[in-house]
Amino acid sequence: MLKLTDVHTYYGNIHALKGINIEVSEGEIISLIGANGAGKSTTLMTTSGVVPAKRGTVELNGEDITQMAPDDIVKRGICQVPEGRRIFPYLTVAENLDMGAFLRDDKEGIKEDLDYVYGLFPILANRRNQSGGTLSGGEQQMLAISRALMSRPKVLLLDEPSLGLAPIIIRQIFDIIQKINQEHKTTIFIVEQNANLALKAAHRGYVMENGAITMTDTGENLLENEDVKKAYLGM
């Protein structure tokens, strides 16, 4: 469904992605793990068109989206929850969700999805008129995921959904991610430092080092892999 072929991305002179290949099939949960600065977030930003690739191609269902503007990529069904959640701090919770549905005109469908995300995260319904900046970290992550769901994405990109959250909240967020995958057949691509959690939730995983993919396998196999254990699981 989503296919990155030999993707090279630069920040100025810094060669951040050195020819990576990733393939995500429909309905899958894929995890990309790796250390700080390995290029995980850049992979997502390149997919979303914010930092377009210099060389290589990004395809969605066979269509080349490498050089498309971010809003055109969202139109085609790829939606990202970026690192640090990036809630609009001075918009209310409800307005943040409205923005998620920016490209949609079907009032009924939007209403339906709004009820759906308020069902997933009831706390957001209680806080709907509060401005986004006043939410706690966990609530902001819930809002960020909900905002992305409001666009009815085919592919959901999640960047460090566990970052800075309490273990119990992380558990809840990952349960919901799996629930979304099962209920809506949404393809999910997670970037995580918390390798244990990410690989348990995923069907398949990729390991990234210094801008290159070094390993790929099923989530279970990677969890058992000695190198992965040593480098990322602290065992």
């Binding site: 914010v50 971010p70 969202v74 990202q80 609009f88 001075y90 923005m99 992305a148 666009s151």
Partner: peptide
């Protein structure tokens, strides 16, 4: 609303389309 969102975070605004 899009104007306010863009004023607050341009990259995120482009990521919601």
């Amino acid at each position: 609303k899009a104007m306010r969102a863009t004023a607050q975070d341009k990259i995120m605004s482009s990521l919601v389309g």
